[in-house]
Amino acid sequence: MLEISDLRVSYPATEGRVEVVHGVDLRLERGSRVALVGESGSGKSVTARAVLQLDQDAAYSGSIRLDGEELLGMSARRIRSIRGFKVGLVFQDPLTSLNPVMRVGWQIMQPLVIRGVDKKEARRRGVELLERLGVAEAGVRFDDYPHQFSGGMRQRVVIAIAVIAEPELLIADEPTTALDVRVQAQVLELLRDIAEERGLSVLLITHDLGIVAGFAEHVVVMRNGLVVERNDVDTLYASPSHPYTRGLLRAVPKIDGDPAQRLLSVDEIAEETQ
């Protein structure tokens, strides 16, 4: 349903432009969960943000097709109409993605209200969804402001806004990086349940190979603006083929690992394989 081919993204620099994504291909089947993994500067977020062309000063080339429809070169108005309805977005920081002076309920209802759904009906569906996302007394909390919610609860509100208009694709950019480990586990579980219930495709952007193992079916590893490896999740973890992927897997301390086993940095792995 989402097909990115030969995507290149560049930004203005002091002299000319700097290309940060150098020809990325990515496919997402309907209902599948794909993780885009990389360290900072890998271009993973830039690639994801390119789908809805969220960065004003970025220049794009290549092709991004959603349900066969080309998104690159589409008018800003048409792109806005896709956002929320066909593609939902969840970002890392739930505090900056919510409007602090609007009640959360109002924000959750917006995608439906804009679409012409009756306010009463929008509220009913909003409360129901918030309840499904594990917010206790959702009917009461609906009229609270974002600051009255904890970090994990705010991220549930952001997820509610992203999925209420029943998009087909959810782009989640580091959705749990700002959360504590137990809240992270709950939010990931919810995201996965919601995706399965609604047949939603999910593109998860993350630096954390731990959360990928339990969430994604397919994994795409990026480094320096290029895809270095792509595989199904079991193969990638069992037998990573690219030295960089092997490096990433061995650079992270594991909760079930033996502390006596020394971590290897990605550079050391690259040297080892040469």
Binding site: V181, L188, E189, G210, A213, G214
Partner: peptide, 22 residues
């Protein structure tokens, strides 16, 4: 115990077993 249960393990088969248990 609850902290340790929540820490993700970078191993898909272990994660599947944990999810099934949950």
């Amino acid at each position: 115990q609850s902290l340790l249960r929540a820490v993700p393990v970078p191993d898909p088969s272990i994660e599947r077993a944990r999810r099934a248990a949950r």
